[in-house]
Every structure is written in structure tokens, then in C-alpha cells.
Design a protein around this nucleic acid. Structure first.
Length: 103
DNA sequence: CTCTTGACGCACA
DNA sequence: GTGTGCGCCAAGA
């Protein structure tokens, strides 16, 4: 089941604690490819198990939602993050400066 | 096997 | 500080 890059992405994303958010670049760096931030998003795109891979805690460098959410839409993502205590600056932007996950 | 697209990031103007 | 362009890695057609 070792998909290599993908498996690492899922593993890193699952490490994100509740109430925290991580950036694609952060995940990319963890998996060993700091330049593969795009592939991180792709890994979540093919996210085989969105219930175990909290892609809703993964946002871009600006804390902005990707827009393409595998759970049910950005609306669901806002609800989940807000439910975890994450504060939103905009309807699709979280206060990543305060809720950024520290690996 | 080759080209384009893609849930991003960083450098430069 | 803001806007635009290029680059990196991987997968689909």
C-alpha cells in the first residue's frame, strides 16, 4: 500500500492536531519534497479516505481554502475548522498566523 | 513515450 | 504591499 509520496502526504496530514491547520508547503516539506506543494494538493485530490485524511485542515500559504474540497465543499470545511476552534479571517481564509501547525 | 494540467510557492517588477 | 510570472513533481490523456 506504499504509494510513496501519497502515503507520506496522508500520514503528515493525519498528524495535524485538532484546532490547527497546515499548509501544502508544510506537508510537502515533511514528505521530503518542499517543491511538491502542488502534488500535496493532488494527493488530497485522490484522497482515498477523506474521513481519515483531514484535508480540511490543509490550506495554502495564505491560509486560504483551496476551493476544491473533497468533503462536501468549502462550507463544510469552514464548519469543521470553526468547530475545532479555528478562527476565520474571511469566509474562506483562516488565521493561519495563529493556528498554523508546528511540525 | 510526449505534452498539458494541477487542491502551490517563491522570486521579481 | 501588491501584481505577475516562472518553477517543481506527479499523473492523466
Amino acid at each position: 500500500m506504499e504509494q510513496g509520496f501519497f502515503a507520506k502526504v496522508y500520514e503528515a496530514v493525519r498528524r495535524i492536531p485538532c484546532g490547527k491547520v497546515a499548509t501544502y508547503g508544510q506537508i510537502a516539506r515533511i514528505v521530503g519534497n518542499p517543491r511538491a506543494a502542488r502534488q500535496v494538493g493532488w494527493a488530497l485530490h485522490v484522497n482515498p479516505e477523506p474521513y481519515v485524511t483531514p484535508c480540511h485542515r490543509v490550506v495554502n500559504r495564505e491560509g486560504k481554502l483551496s476551493g476544491a474540497f473533497a468533503f462536501g465543499g468549502a462550507d463544510a470545511q469552514r464548519y469543521l475548522l470553526m468547530n475545532e476552534g479555528v478562527e476565520f479571517i474571511d469566509d474562506e481564509t483562516v488565521d493561519i498566523a495563529k493556528y498554523l501547525w508546528e511540525a
